[in-house]
């Protein structure tokens, strides 16, 4: 698999795994309106994942479609960010995870508008609008919860501290990233840090939350090095499809 294909697959897997997590919320959110809001996120991210899978499949050239890639790969072949495979926890943790991700994804899509890969640039153009709305929604909720009640403040501060180590991966470029940056396919991950930091700090301030100190953490899902959560997630996601090899649905 070429680095270019791997780069795109990382984005596809990241969106799919996060959509899968959000799908778990449907019917269980704190209010009916939030059920609709989270479902909306899931649909948008799933749509982005499908476009990216189609592109990755073409780049790979082995005839694998979106379902082959999504349902028939193992944990170690999955290249999603570690951040998005973290369990939902309570609504606060879900919002913190979402916000940290949205701020990154928007910066990434904005950069990908200049990608030399025209398909990737087109996907980014469509997806950036959705991302902007997501950031508005998750940022809004983080502010309400951070500056709501003492209980909500404590819950999201704890979630922020817990999830912060997973943000290192977002800005730590490796060989695959460098192979994409060279030919102008994607931005250097480090280059997204400033825009991300600015957006995050602005919201954290309004949410009266403290930015956690930097933590060393180097187990990167984008390199196929996952913790224990992804296994359960994929088992649930893939079980029915795998139980009927070759069937269409």
């Amino acid at each position: 698999m070429t680095p270019h294909c791997r780069y795109v697959l990382r984005l596809a897997d990241t969106n799919l795994v996060l959509a899968q997590r959000l799908g778990e919320w449907v019917g269980h959110a704190p209010a009916l309106e939030e059920d609709l809001g989270l479902a909306n996120f899931a649909l948008d991210l799933l749509g982005q994942a499908r476009m990216l899978f189609a592109h990755a499949g073409e780049l790979e050239g082995r005839g694998r479609g979106e379902d082959d890639l999504a349902y028939l790969r193992e944990e170690s072949e999955y290249l999603n960010l570690t951040l998005v495979e973290q369990p939902n926890g309570d609504f606060g943790r879900t919002i913190v995870r979402q916000f940290l991700f949205d701020a990154w994804q928007l910066a990434l899509y904005e950069a990908l508008l200049q990608s030399k890969d025209p398909r990737l640039a087109a996907i980014a153009a469509r997806s950036a609008k959705e991302s902007a709305y997501h950031l508005r929604y998750s940022g809004g909720w983080l502010i309400r919860l951070g500056d709501g009640t003492p209980e909500s403040h404590e819950r999201v501060q704890r979630a922020l501290d817990r999830l912060w180590p997973f943000t290192n991966e977002l800005f730590d470029g490796d060989d695959v990233d460098r192979a994409a940056t060279g030919p102008g396919i994607g931005p250097a991950p480090e280059s997204l840090r400033d825009a991300w930091s600015r957006r995050v700090d602005e919201v954290l301030a309004e949410a009266t939350l403290e930015r956690p100190p930097p933590v060393k953490f180097g187990w990167y899902g984008k390199q196929g090095r996952h913790g224990e959560h992804l296994g359960y997630l994929l088992a649930e996601m893939q079980s029915l499809h795998r139980a009927h090899p070759g069937a269409t649905w």
Binding site: E33, L36, Y137, G140
Partner: peptide, 9 residues
């Protein structure tokens, strides 16, 4: 929130 909910609903 009202605008966002209205959009989703």
């Amino acid at each position: 929130m009202a605008i966002e909910h209205a959009r989703d609903l």
